[in-house]
Design a protein around this nucleic acid. Structure first.
Ligand SMILES: [Mn+2]
Ligand SMILES: [Mn+2]
Ligand SMILES: [Zn+2]
Ligand SMILES: [Zn+2]
Lengths: 138, 138
DNA sequence: CGCTATACAGTAATCATTACTATCTGATTA
DNA sequence: TAATCAGATAGTAATGATTACTGTATAGCG
């Protein structure tokens, strides 16, 4: 992640200013933004960028394995540049999505164990916990 | 689940033929159907039932705690009459959703442990694993 | 440079979900 | 049983996220 351009090139993706801005923004935040939020942020640097470009680029980055797409709740998808399997805490009131590392559950290990047991070829594991965050409980 | 009508009444819901058919159908299947699939099935008994009624009723049943709504992938939601937290295996090719009980992870216990650690008031926990099922691997 | 595959911007189409409204019905009461 | 009423149903419209399409522009490469 040291060099955004280099990372894109390694994945066989063309390096464009828009792509770099989108991917860099995701690498620098811990907020798990939606495509809409990413658009708003990137527009500060590229006022002419279209929402469609942001949306499509996120799909390309996901397919390249550079970002993770989170399906939390039934609303718009959230994006995460941390592609390692980790737990997400989702506040049902403010919509915030937070990471939860070291929770006593190693998701990678869980997936490994299940592969043999079920015959499934795993590609992704998602553990989402919904509730109300401390801040939203006044 | 012995008596569908009784279960609905206990939750303070009016007992209607449509509701009974929808809830009974969900109790009898292990397929985690979508609203669309439930509609197709219930139409065999009630040819005039509207998709909207099925959809709305599923929301009512969910709010009453009688069914669980699953957000697997980005496609339409799936429904489950088993409201206990359990793991779901989702095949990315055929779309099948399967239960995975006794996988060495007790989700209820995980949620309990996290409550103290994070200060979150948990209401729901979802563990979804995506991959290709044995049948789809030829 | 000049070529070519692909990215971009802009817009339209699709699809799940939610909202709305006019009837209809289950349950309760007289 | 008949009247009443809250809530359910059918039908349709609106919303919002995602996907598809189409000219134009640009990155990567010889
Ligand atoms: Mn994360
Ligand atoms: Mn299930
Ligand atoms: Zn919150
Ligand atoms: Zn399959």
């Amino acid at each position: 992640m040291a060099n955004v351009a280099e990372t894109l090139r390694e994945k066989g993706l063309k390096v464009t200013p828009q792509r770099m801005a989108i991917y860099r923004m995701l690498c620098e935040t811990r907020a798990h933004p939606t495509a809409e939020a990413i658009w708003e942020k990137v527009k500060e640097e590229f006022p002419a960028i279209s929402f469609n470009t942001v949306y499509t680029t996120l799909g390309i980055l996901e397919r390249a394995g550079l970002v993770q797409r989170l399906h939390v709740g039934e609303k718009a998808a959230h994006y995460d540049a941390d592609t390692s399997p980790h737990i997400h805490l989702c506040c049902e009131r403010c919509g915030r999505v937070r990471d939860l590392h070291k929770a006593g559950v190693d998701l990678t290990e869980v997936a490994q164990n299940l592969r043999a047991k079920t015959g499934y070829e795993m590609s992704k594991i998602e553990l989402n916990i919904y509730g109300i965050c401390p801040e939203c409980r006044h």
